[in-house]
Computed example of a mutant assay.
Amino acid sequence: MPATPDKPTDPTAVGDTGLLDALQHEVAVFARRAEQTRLGGVGQVRNSMDRAAYLLLNRLDKEGPMGVKALAASMGIDSSTVTRQVAPLVDTGLVKRTSHPEDGRAVVLQLSPRGLARLEEVRASRRQLMAELTQDWKPEEREAFCSLLTRFNRALSARQAAHCAAQQDTSPAS
């Protein structure tokens, strides 16, 4: 089906090429600045935390204790990745392994009190940073930015999930 002015088939044809170039540049700058902030280049060094650790602790706090497979599925990553990322969190006492309440043979990961305290410390630091960076924004601007960033992240997540599904469909059976 040929492209029409209303329905282009090429996603890069949507909008102004200059705007898309500016958007991809700003996303790249954002990613770099976010990483610098996480590493303590901006903000409080004592409250920096590895991105994977923050996301895992946050997920356990919001969704409660769960097994490795459930945690991996809820985060859209591989179980082996979760296992590797959780190990240092268990070693440092931020996460504890417990028996599943209904099946004592199964292991469940749970945020420890120390992990919750550390997560709250990091959240408070990040909240303060967000407040400083957006102090001259109107509340509706903060809400719009958060909404658009959430939408952008969901689109990235959906694209990644589709890409992984397509790779599984084309991989040879073992």
Rank of each mutant, 00 (worst) to 15 (best):
M1P: 06
M1F: 07
T4A: 05
T4W: 06
P5K: 11
D6V: 06
K7G: 01
K7W: 13
K7E: 12
K7N: 13
K7D: 11
P8T: 09
P8F: 09
D10E: 13
P11V: 13
A13G: 12
T17R: 15
G18W: 05
L19C: 04
L19Y: 08
L20E: 05
L20C: 03
D21C: 06
L23I: 15
Q24G: 00
H25E: 11
A28F: 03
F30P: 00
F30N: 10
R33L: 15
R33D: 10
A34T: 08
E35R: 11
T37M: 07
G40L: 04
G40K: 04
G41S: 02
G43A: 02
V45R: 14
N47E: 12
S48H: 10
S48W: 03
M49P: 00
M49D: 01
D50P: 01
Y54N: 01
Y54K: 01
L55Q: 14
L55W: 05
L56C: 03
L57K: 02
L57T: 02
L57A: 02
N58P: 00
L60H: 03
L60K: 04
L60M: 05
P65V: 02
P65N: 04
P65T: 06
M66V: 05
V68Q: 13
L71K: 07
A72Y: 07
A73Q: 13
S80I: 04
T81C: 00
V82G: 05
R84K: 15
R84N: 10
R84W: 04
R84L: 08
Q85G: 00
V86Y: 06
P88Q: 09
L89W: 09
T92H: 09
G93R: 07
R97T: 12
T98D: 04
T98G: 02
S99V: 03
G104Q: 12
R105L: 06
V107F: 00
V108N: 06
V108R: 10
L109K: 02
Q110T: 11
Q110M: 08
L111G: 03
S112N: 01
P113V: 01
A117W: 01
A117N: 05
L119E: 02
E121R: 11
V122G: 01
R123P: 00
R126M: 05
R127S: 09
R127G: 02
Q128A: 15
A131L: 09
L133I: 03
Q135S: 13
Q135T: 06
K138L: 15
P139S: 06
P139A: 08
R142W: 06
R142V: 15
A144L: 15
F145E: 07
F145C: 10
C146M: 06
C146H: 05
C146N: 07
S147C: 03
S147V: 00
L148W: 08
L148Y: 10
L148V: 07
L149G: 03
L149A: 14
T150Y: 10
R154I: 07
A155V: 09
A155D: 07
S157W: 08
S157T: 11
R159M: 10
R159E: 13
Q160G: 04
Q160E: 12
A161V: 10
H163N: 11
H163G: 04
C164K: 13
C164W: 06
A165F: 08
Q167N: 08
Q168L: 11
Q168C: 01
Q168R: 14
D169H: 09
D169L: 14
S171W: 00
A173S: 12
